[in-house]
């Protein structure tokens, strides 16, 4: 186990990642090169910040509302407190530039953020999904999780030792992350996740969550955290448009054997990722470049390897790489 909550997710002196969250795992599963650029180099598109800030503030406001409700506040009171805090945080929020912003960025304004939060709270004012209260009496909101798997990286002599059971890793793999909210819904326990999109979230939208790395990991994590069977994931999607915000709730079920299969597959995936790290090479998966509206690094991978660095320097900023162990 780690001594410091914000320790590196990598084995000391290596690029072998032992602590994984859904974000880093999703990158690595989608494309090793995408993982390399994001996780190891810390490249971020220069135009990404408005989406990130919008999402963070949206989640924080709803999380606060859930806390206030669970603490006994009524709807109006909890809404008022959550909105007051949101307004305070938005003092330094910069609306996207109307002339140069992409259509998906233009709607991510302060006003639309406030609107989306308040309309969501009104929409689900009398929600059938009720926050699960844990055995310690606390509401299961923005529930952080971190737990060990029963195996770990085996690549370096420093991190393993021999026993009568064979080679055993000293540092097991760790799964970690944050669950937005755990709720009782239709006689089952569900992980609730909230998404914002500028697209229309019709039935096709929800198909992408079944199967889905993040949602299955969350169902698995909820099961470990609560020591109870999780029925599935509730996905509340907010469509943020120019003139209004709309909300759709989707349900994605996970059976115990589906989760078991996901964990079994994870063993194989992590071994593969470990090999990339040992070899120091993360190959392109060129069948994934057009997924999710096109990979953010497509413009880089499409260039000659000799000229990629120039384009990376021009179109991306290099920030502190993503750390699944960092407390947010």
């Amino acid at each position: 186990m780690l001594d410091q909550p914000e320790d590196s997710p990598f084995l000391s002196g290596t690029n072998i990642q032992f602590a994984w969250d859904s974000t880093s795992l999703g990158w690595a599963k989608t494309c090793p090169r995408l993982y390399y650029y994001n996780m190891l180099c810390g490249y971020r598109p220069k135009d990404e910040s408005v989406h990130l800030r919008f999402g963070i503030e949206y989640h924080t406001a709803l999380e606060e509302y859930d806390y206030f409700r669970a603490a006994g506040a009524d709807h109006d009171e909890a809404e008022h407190l959550a909105v007051a805090d949101l307004v305070e945080r938005l003092k330094d929020y910069k609306d996207p530039d109307g002339e140069y912003a992409k259509p998906s960025e233009k709607v991510k304004t302060k006003e639309n953020l406030l609107r989306t939060v308040i309309w969501y709270l009104e929409e689900f004012k009398n929600d059938a999904a009720q926050t699960y209260i844990k055995t310690d009496g606390k509401p299961a909101v923005e529930q952080s999780f971190r737990f060990e798997l029963d195996f770990g990286p085996q690549a370096t002599p420093e991190t393993r030792h021999s026993t009568n059971k064979g080679i055993v890793a000293d540092q097991p793999y760790i799964l970690c992350g944050h669950l937005d909210r755990i709720v009782n819904y239709n006689d089952g326990l569900f992980i609730m996740d909230r998404k914002t999109t500028t697209q229309t979230p019709g039935p096709y939208y929800f198909k992408k969550y079944d199967p889905d790395n993040q949602m299955t990991l969350y169902a698995y994590a909820g099961q470990v955290v609560l020591r109870s069977q999780i029925t599935g994931v509730l996905i509340d999607v907010a469509q943020v448009a120019v003139n209004g915000s709309k909300f759709v709730r989707g349900v994605s079920y996970r059976s115990p054997d589906q989760i078991e299969e996901w964990v079994r597959d994870l063993h194989v995936h992590l071994r593969t990722f470990e090999r990339y790290a040992v070899e120091g090479y993360w190959p392109q998966n060129d069948t994934a470049c057009d997924k999710f509206g096109g990979c953010r690094f497509r413009g880089i991978c499409s260039k000659s390897p000799s000229s990629r660095q120039m384009f990376l320097d021009n179109d991306f900023t290099q920030e502190e790489p993503w750390n699944p162990l960092k407390v947010r």
Partner: peptide, 14 residues
Amino acid sequence: NDIKEIIRAQREAR
């Protein structure tokens, strides 16, 4: 009162 006004206006807009 500002916060109440924001919420009231957004409820009506919705």
